[in-house]
Design a protein around this nucleic acid. Structure first.
Lengths: 206, 206
DNA sequence: GGATGTGAATGTCTTCACAGCT
DNA sequence: AGCTGTGAAGACATTCACATCC
């Protein structure tokens, strides 16, 4: 299949959320128009996005809500669960580790690591903070599918290297550094400073 | 000035971070090549991005690090400070309110609000959690420049409406809903579920 | 000589508009 | 008649390549 733009994937993820809302409301079918109206896009965009993966609708009818949601979950790789490790038990790490919303979508935080002795053994919802120096021992057999890096910038690259060695192929990076990883490893950067600065730019101009 | 793409603004924000690193290292000038190398882009992209705002370099020399950093801060609207209110003192809200990195870049969290009586009065770094029902009274005179919405989805829209009424024109939205706001209000959505789902898509395909 | 600044070319994404199916 | 699916057009973003200036 042709390479799909990330913006498309992000919209699919949104559409899925809207479909789940429609499902709760008991709506059986939606048009591209209705789906677009709930989000911030156009009917043509919705149809084009979906058409990249197949023909899921019926002309004159629209899309069956439950069926399309199932298709989208499949496309997005949500037909399975993912084991997640959170590296760094600071404010961001602990907020993420405790956030229940992930598990609801199949992302299960199984491990939390930190280097600070004061943090080791702390337990959130039964999840103990483990010593990051033991990471290789712990994860040698069965490691996470996805790692969330929530550490200071100066140690992020070396931790990323270790995670990649352990077979991790997807990293959600909160550290404010550009990670260097092999081409087959996916990295998503989340950087609050950038988000705030797009807002300050908008306030100044716009 | 012509409308600038958001992707450009995000890169400028990155360049600024890299320039600050170069500054700490004592580097006086950088080429577009060096700046691109630190991030994940090309020299031509760096030059094009900067050229949208002016001519900041010297041919044969490159860019003076400190001077360019100053220009970028000006472009991004970082030549001033911003008063920030965090709405929602749950895990995300408290992590954000306590995060020191914002203040370093001029974003000062001055208020934290919540509706849960159990949370009121909690103090983080001298910042007391206030009753959201008092928000209008508190902020009537002098409100925040930027609001960070970190509440459950079902109350986010009504809070956004109240914030807009108070004059807020920039919202960083962590609630998993698409906010409807007037055209002159900037909204940036941050949604961890979407980030994780782009990773699960990458794991499945790519 | 060396690196910028920038039109032109290329590539990518979005919107349009309508044929085609239900 | 209604709404999808999709080529074609248009808008936008990135890359190229080189004249220009320090």
């Amino acid at each position: 299949m042709r390479r799909i733009a990330e913006s498309t994937i992000r919209r699919l993820s949104l559409y899925l959320r809207f479909l789940e809302e429609f499902e709760e409301e008991g709506t059986a079918t939606v048009s591209s128009e209705e789906l677009a109206g709930r989000g911030a896009t156009t009917a043509a965009q919705v149809r084009k996005d979906l058409s990249l993966f197949g023909s899921f609708g019926k002309r004159g009818m629209g899309y069956r809500v439950h069926e399309l949601a199932t298709k989208l979950r499949d496309i997005l790789g949500l037909g399975r669960t993912y084991d997640v490790a959170v590296i760094g038990a600071g404010k961001v790490g602990s907020a993420l580790a405790q956030y229940g919303g992930f598990a609801a979508r199949g992302f299960h935080v199984r491990w939390v690591y930190d280097a600070d002795p004061a943090k080791l053994g702390l337990a959130w919802d039964g999840l103990r903070v483990r010593d990051v120096s033991r990471m290789e021992d712990d994860l040698h057999d069965h490691g996470p599918d996805i790692a969330i890096l929530a550490t200071p910038g100066d140690v992020a690259q070396s931790l990323a290297d270790r995670l990649v060695s352990l077979g991790v192929r997807a990293i959600l990076n909160f550290a404010p550094v550009q990670l260097a990883v092999p081409a087959d490893v996916a990295v998503k950067n989340v950087n609050m400073a950038i988000e705030l600065e797009t807002l300050s730019y908008a306030l100044r101009h716009g």
